[in-house]
Amino acid sequence: MRANFVFTEMGIAIRRNLSMIISVILVTFISLTFVGTAGLLQQQISSMKTYWYDKAQVAIYLCTKTSPQDVCPQGEASKDVRNTITSRLDSGTLKPYIEQYYFENHDEAYKTFIKEFKDNAVAKYVTPAQLNETFWVNLKDPNQAPIIIESFTGLSGVEEVKDQRSYLDQIFAMLNIASLAAISIAGLMLFSAVLLISTTIRLSAVMRRREIGIMRLVGASNFYIQLPFILEGVVAGVLGSLLAGGAIFALVQFFVQGFLAQQLPFTSFVGLGDAWTLLPGLLGLGALLAGLAAFTSIRRYLKV
């Protein structure tokens, strides 16, 4: 085996076929960028999940004067209602699941509301009495929210029991759809990349059919004949995945860290470390797909 010879042949093939090789590199680049973006989105979702799920609480909203009549026929929740809830939360059945809980009265709820909506016109019309008194419950395991919900829903004086995670789940569902969309586009692009690589390799084989004919006559092994073509595909695939890796790093550095993280300072975002973990996968995928596409197309073109 003479590596020198194989690489020279590959170099010749790439030079003769430059425009096709460039298009292979670009298509691989774009499709793997989509794959990488989908990967980043998934990492973002999981890091947000761990961050927010721990903070998410179950809220037990008590009836107010303005609550709908059908859920709260007695109007404003009495002190008895509060006592009942407190004793149930402290009871042996529920206590093991609860990390901590606290009670928020009308005035505290009003302060929080005003703080959150201070730039919003609605702040002017809200009065403390309209805002629910609320028990905020932190669970040891956020997945056990249904226990609290079942225990308190329908209790007289309770307007609603809500797991805050249900709000988060909507956001995560949207992010998931975005990452699915990215993956679907990536799949289509990768498919076209594979077709493009097969065509390129076949074209390359046609351009070099004299050399191939002679190689077969003098008894060059199939491996020796095929290797330059496969390497040609792999080199193009790896270059494309390197570009995609670069694009992912740029995306994280300039868009996520440089822009998003400045705009939303209290959210944890994916960093360059996450991009690094994606890089080997992208390189491997690019090289593997290109190599396989080149191998199968050259196999079909070159019979012994």
């Binding site: 004299r210 050399e211 002679i214 006559l217 003098v218 008894g219 092994s221 199939n222 012994v304």
Partner: peptide
């Protein structure tokens, strides 16, 4: 098939049209 290349190394061939690169 995989032994065909090795077999061909014991044969030489020339053609009417030379087939040089």
């Amino acid at each position: 098939n995989r032994r065909v290349p090795h077999f061909r190394r014991s044969l030489g061939v020339v053609f009417q049209d030379f087939r040089l690169l």
